[in-house]
Every structure is written in structure tokens, then in C-alpha cells.
Design a protein around this nucleic acid. Structure first.
Lengths: 182, 182
DNA sequence: TCTGATATATGTCGTAACGATATATATCAT
DNA sequence: ATGATATATATCGTTACGACATATATCAGA
């Protein structure tokens, strides 16, 4: 699934400007499973318009710069629905934290403590974000995916809280062994 | 964290060829939180060798093509440990499934059933993979991250099994509404 | 008052990384 | 002997990111 389909999905739920698409994808409903950069959004919107999958109108705003609002067309919606029937690819998941945790023995307790405490805080913020989104929107499928997120991220947070200290205890152990061997 | 650091991390746990690094990162211990493509691995190994972060030796094998085995140097290990102290970035998580689930109303029950059943099967395979890795390696930090993975992916699987039918029930609802409105 | 911070808004550009493909050797089952 | 599979290295076009440039408007505080 490419940027094109992602943007069509967002526009299918309502008109938006490039800036709003970015916000939706990094702070809104989509933010816990998608993120699109400006470097992808603006060129893709131009391509989408050229292919008549979206239309564009300029809106003047009071106190803010003009915005270009994009709407999905029937052709665009058909394209999106057709893309939905392609079996979704595996989730892409990359975690620098897990790599650092796996190398806990090589670094200091301070580094590990900061890393896991940052992670706990970020995870708490994510759970709060999803809770907020959930109460804002009663669309059934959105309720389903936010319940899913809350369930999984809640379990994640539980593990982090219960096992924080045991990870910190591993910090520096490899170093000590190396030095002892010298 | 870039490909360079990722590869240094893998080589820090033991010598490997480019092919083995790929396997480790998409089938081995690292596979549940990292994936590196050949298009990144081979050019990065060449760069790493030029910078003296790794050394390379050729090994002839019986019944298999020769392989180029890379080893991390002291300079490379220092570089890696230094990279560890940089606070890890947020996890990157992209899920096509969640986008499809969120659009369940636009598509057919068949499409949704296939998507969720595929996901359940894949998640079961992932849990089995992590279980296997866990029993193979008694390194404490590896035990920690595999426990973490098992805990989170177990919760994930629970939710999918318990809420499979309610998602399928949402399929096609938007279409019906559209048609009723016509 | 003007200065800096913040938010809105669009866009570009270098480069990192992916994904597919090419190439080659060896094994093994049909 | 033919095709499939596994091992192994490498390149290349394309995608997408991340940082930057540009511009307008609001508002708090020096």
C-alpha cells in the first residue's frame, strides 16, 4: 500500500488540505499506524489531481494563509475501494528501543533508565491520544481499531512498568565482564 | 538509527555475511522489530569496511558458494556503543490492516474475513517464532525483549480472536447505506 | 513597538532505504 | 536433464523520508 492509497483513504473520510493530511497522519486518528511526510504528501496530491482521483479548490481563511482543499472524486473512490481488496501487507514495525534493550549489557544504567522511562511516558501519551480519538468519533470501525490499539498498548505499558527494573539491572554487565577478563 | 548502526549491532553479537545479516533481520532474533533489505546491507557493509568499522574474510564452503564473513573491529564496537547512548527514536509502525479495518464498511465481508484471518495466522506464526528464539538463547537482554514481544503479541492475538466477528459484521454497511440513499 | 515564538500552509531537494532483479553455484527431487 | 530451492553477492530504479525554504498571521512579553 503506497502513499497514494493512504491519501485516498484519508480523503474518503472527508476533504482536507495537504497540511491537514499531515496532521491527521501524525497527530490524528491515523497517527498510531501511519505517518506520511510532506515530501510525500504534496507531490502525491499533485499526481492524484492529474489522474482525476481528487479535485482541488482554494479556500481563503481569515487570519491564516489560503489553503488548497482536496476532495476525492468517484473515480478516486473506486480506485480506493479496489485497492482495499488487495490483501494488506504485514505491519512494518521498527523499534530502536528494542535494539538498545537487547544491548543493555554494553551501556550504562543511566542510558537504559532514560530510554525505558522515555518509552513509558511516550506509551502513556499514545494511550491517552487513542482514548481521546475514541471518544470523539462513534464510527463503528474507528471504535474497533481504537479498542484494538488501547488493548495492545495497554498490555505494552503493563509489561514496561512491571519489567522496568529488571532491564535496568542488566545495564553495564557485559562491560564488567570484559573488564574482569582483562 | 541508521542501517550502519543496525548492522554493527548484529555484527557485535557475532560474525556474519551479508546474506546471514539479511536472514537474521527478517527471520531471526531481530525480525520482530527490524528488517533490512539487500539494497541497504551490501552497500553499507562496503562503507563500513572502508571506515574500518568491520573487517572481511572470504570463506569457502562445501556445497555452497563462497561467503564474505564480516567481523566488527574495536573501532566499530566503540562506534556502536557511542550510538547506543543517543536516545532511541519512536517506534515506526505502519499497518495496512488497520487502514483496511477502518474502511471495513466500504468493502465486502469476504475481504474483511480474509484480512483478519490472515492476520491471526501471521500473528500466531510470529508468537511461535519469538517463543522459539527465546528458548534458543539464554542471554538475559534477549530473554527480556522476547518476553516483551510474547506479552504484547499475545495480547494482540487475544483481541483479534475475541473481536474477529464484530469486525466482519461491519463489512459492507456503508455500501448498503449508499445504495439505500439512492 | 518590535521581537520571538507558535501555528498555519505549501512546497522542494538531497539522500536513505526499499523492492525487484540479475547473476552464479550447488543440491535435490522429479 | 530439468526445474525448484537454497545459498550468496550485488546493482538499480523508484519511493519516501527528513530537513529546509518560504510566507502569512497571531499573540505574549521585553
Amino acid at each position: 500500500m503506497n502513499t497514494q492509497t493512504l491519501i485516498l483513504a484519508i480523503l474518503n473520510f472527508g476533504d482536507a488540505s495537504g497540511y491537514e493530511i499531515k496532521k491527521e497522519s501524525s497527530e490524528g486518528v491515523y497517527s498510531y499506524f501511519v505517518d506520511i511526510s510532506y515530501g510525500s504528501i504534496y507531490p502525491t496530491l499533485a499526481k492524484l489531481e492529474a489522474e482525476e482521483f481528487v479535485t482541488c479548490r482554494s479556500e481563503t481563511q481569515s487570519g491564516k494563509p489560503d489553503k488548497k482543499v482536496y476532495s476525492i472524486t468517484d473515480k478516486g473512490r473506486a480506485e480506493f475501494i479496489s485497492a482495499l481488496s488487495i490483501p494488506p501487507a504485514h505491519d512494518k514495525f521498527k523499534s530502536e528501543f528494542l535494539l538498545v534493550a537487547m544491548s543493555a549489557g554494553l551501556t550504562s544504567p543511566e542510558v537504559i533508565t532514560r530510554a525505558i522511562d522515555n518509552r513509558i511516558r511516550e506509551m502513556e501519551e499514545l494511550v491517552e491520544l487513542i482514548s481521546g480519538l475514541r471518544s470523539e468519533c462513534d464510527h463503528p470501525a474507528t471504535q474497533w481499531i481504537t479498542s484494538y490499539g488501547l488493548h495492545v498498548k495497554g498490555a505494552d505499558l503493563d509489561f514496561l512498568r512491571n519489567n522496568r527494573d529488571s532491564l535496568i539491572a542488566m545495564a553495564g554487565l557485559n562491560k564488567t565482564l570484559d573488564q574482569a577478563a582483562e
